[in-house]
Design a protein around this nucleic acid. Sequence first.
DNA 1: TTGTAAGCGTTATCAA
DNA 2: TTGATAACGCTTACAA
Lengths: 342, 342
Amino acid sequence: MSIQKDGKLNQIGTVTADHVAAEAGVSRWTVNRAFRQEASISAKSRKKVMEAAEKLGYVPDLLASSLRSERSNLVAVLVDDFANPHKLVMMERLTRILRKHGWDTLLVNMLGEADTSAALLSASQRRVDAAILIGIQFNEEVLATALGAQRVRKLIIFARDSENPNTISICCDDVGAMTAIADYVLNKGYRKPLFLAGPQTESAHLKRKDTFLELWRQNRGDLPASISVPFYDPLLAYERTADYLASHDRSDYPDVVVCENDALAMGAIDAIRFRFGLRVPQDIAVTGFDDVPQAASPNYRLTTYRQPISAMAEALVEVLKGNNDPAHLCGFLGEMIVRESA
Amino acid sequence: MSIQKDGKLNQIGTVTADHVAAEAGVSRWTVNRAFRQEASISAKSRKKVMEAAEKLGYVPDLLASSLRSERSNLVAVLVDDFANPHKLVMMERLTRILRKHGWDTLLVNMLGEADTSAALLSASQRRVDAAILIGIQFNEEVLATALGAQRVRKLIIFARDSENPNTISICCDDVGAMTAIADYVLNKGYRKPLFLAGPQTESAHLKRKDTFLELWRQNRGDLPASISVPFYDPLLAYERTADYLASHDRSDYPDVVVCENDALAMGAIDAIRFRFGLRVPQDIAVTGFDDVPQAASPNYRLTTYRQPISAMAEALVEVLKGNNDPAHLCGFLGEMIVRESA
DNA sequence: TTGTAAGCGTTATCAA
DNA sequence: TTGATAACGCTTACAA
């Protein structure tokens, strides 16, 4: 593919900065400078270098670059919950925006809580600039231990709030969001909500349930009922909702089920309709959270809340660049998406 | 964190093989050998090294390793279609199985057909052992050009069939799969199928539509109608199906809609139900392909076909290891998943 | 089985 | 603005 200095054909066709330097009649370091924005280099030199690079098909080797420098321009995204379609949305946004700003993404499938340490190890062995957790099962304690042992430069919890002082959380304001939902539900005249929550783990968590219950109590005086499932799985939500309804008298049914996210909301809707033959929203209304693509389907027409994922991803980039004060990154506000389910 | 040879505190706390070597009283190369399975090293030396490594918190640096050797144990997965939930299933399987065998995954968000080249460039700059395409929009021509220019060692098309001789396709046998579906539909007594296909692009494609139509013609003598949408998007499938039904007399309605995948099938079901008030399967039946998690929901209860993704991913690993004959990798057979939609 | 020399392609640092 | 030296941490090849 390309000829090396010694004339030998290189196995993977590598063209190095030295080749370009020889072609352009400059030094290797000038070639390097031509490929960075901030470098002090004359326009003329840069032009010469770029033409030579184009001609030879040179691109900088990010591996070698990462080895010598303190940056790899690589981040790891750790995911442990591929059942929730919202993960797909987050991955799409994160990878797109990270790539736009020059970062590549290492996708690490965390096989469970016990795998946290191994997953972080994988990331650290590639010298990622940061590890981003968009999972749910990681345990704060395991995390702290793993973090101490591994040389992960930054640990970012995305779309979730962590108590761990060594991590940076980027998430939306759960109080603000739940206030929007509670206001909507109240204004629509619902009076008997049931809260359907996800895993009640000790890991970085969502304050949505407690926030909603407290807001409701402040407004109406009574504390709504709540149920939960161990995973954000629509089928579990289906079963749990069905159990709840089956164990209550029709007169004790909620008039609205407020769900911690869309995955749960869709399961709840299915149960209300297919297990009890009731109508949504006429008999029981349902609200979600996330606005996954399926929420818009004619089946669900889900009233939900959309987090500003793109803005959150942009903030993450600022953190990577070191431009952001990590203290104020959990105040993002989204918007109510009103459809027909409530 | 750790002390270097020169006594300086290393910024990122790096413990190198040299540190471990000093601690264990062996050479750096013995440390290296201790960390590989095939190396010729005495059990005693290995034990000494491993204890020292444990004590110092040493792990090999994959970046430095990749730089010198011909392998990076890193593969890129290029995705351009985050709307289809089946992508989430494939990513979960691929990352899990790759990681099990020692490969890390670079997730590259291909922003469109025109981005093929840039996406492959990203991958090549990290020296991936292979680039795996699970997208749909890449163009054969662009691919060929990009492939020539970039130093990607292997290009693997996953779950899709490519004509490009320089790529390796790993996919299921579309003829076998469509035969199973056609047989099922015929045996159930349906006589007027409509085929709902995805993008009819020139890129690596699915032969499902042509195969089904031909099988049907051979069996019944008539050629079924077919329609298509430009993306695998349920909402587009909804609109297209609705258009088709609206422009036909009730007596000309199909008795079954055979869909190229589940995403389209779910859109079709929504249209049949919510736009025309018809029942599935009593008025019009629907079949899918992929068996995405949502296909099992009480809403859809979709009769579909499940590809053996895990087996395909294992085959991919064999290709990476160089153990497989790339000639016979499109013969995977899945299984019919029979539910109530047809 | 173990050790030595050389080098992977880039960048930090300093000198010109 | 440009060039030179040394190093990043590891692995290939070969020698002991």
